[in-house]
Design a protein around this nucleic acid. Structure first.
Lengths: 140, 140
DNA sequence: GCTACTGGTGATACGTAGTATCAATATATG
DNA sequence: CATATATTGATACTACGTATCACCAGTAGC
């Protein structure tokens, strides 16, 4: 599968650039992630990979999130969901019903957030904007 | 203390309006919360009230959060912090260093978020905006 | 003020999310 | 191929929160 192969290569590259080793467990996790559409919990990945240790699953997810391959969104209650990061900077549309997470971009929003960051005392490191909604699907 | 007394009264009122009972443990939790400045974790409240059960501490915090007395902010890693809710609708300035949570309001931001909500497919229920920063204090 | 009804409490157990430890193992490199 | 070391996975631990359930205490009605 094209997408899987390219993510494999991307993961190899990232690991190399970080001086990390390319191991079988990391490949297994990366391949499973690549097959996922939408958002997922770390625990669900762990459940689908009984042959990979839990700690390794979590470590790999963290590694890929820090490398920008995955991004982390928080459901309204704070529980994290991960998804493949398709675009550089974006926010999230989170369905409170089916927990689907979609990416969302708005240059106008970005501009305003930038302006506000300049006004806020201290050094702004980043921001998070999430919309909680009932998605068209869940509205029937 | 004035602030404590008024929160006591407010909590009594809220409990009454919800048809809930005014109990000693709920008062203890509410009093401790009133004495807090800034944000705190549920667990820290639990630790400071050994005579109140953990379940009751969490139940009371949830009750007060749902009633609008407390508001919940999420640190960058998703761990929740609670603080007395001083103003109706606001966002958060979260110091990544000292974990201080401050309230933040911007009518311009609110207006834009409202506009965007209209454009987003599905029924938008709410949004969350957080700025992560190093606060002036932590910048020395 | 007493009593009964029922909501609240707290001990315990459970579930999710994630990190720390550490002996055993696999990888990249000379 | 040998070896230094990054990585693994079992286990244990922390934070955060909910479910259960026997017992207790508010509150409404008399």
């Amino acid at each position: 599968m094209m997408a899987t192969d390219s993510l494999d290569a991307r993961v190899d590259e990232i690991l190399k650039s970080l001086g990390r080793r390319t191991t079988a467990p990391r490949r297994q996790v990366a391949r499973l992630l690549a097959s996922k559409r939408g958002a997922f919990s770390a625990e669900s990945i762990n459940a689908e990979l009984p042959e990979v240790g839990r700690a390794t699953v979590y470590r790999t997810i963290r590694l890929l999130a820090e490398a920008g391959v995955l991004c982390k969104a928080l459901l309204p209650d704070g529980s994290p969901r991960y998804s493949i990061d398709h675009s550089w900077h974006h926010h999230h549309l989170i369905c409170s019903s089916c927990e689907t997470v979609e990416e969302f971009r708005s240059s106008e929003l970005e501009r305003l957030l930038g302006e506000l960051s300049d006004e806020i005392p201290g050094q702004v490191l980043g921001h998070q904007v999430d919309f909680y909604l009932t998605c068209p699907n869940c509205l029937q």
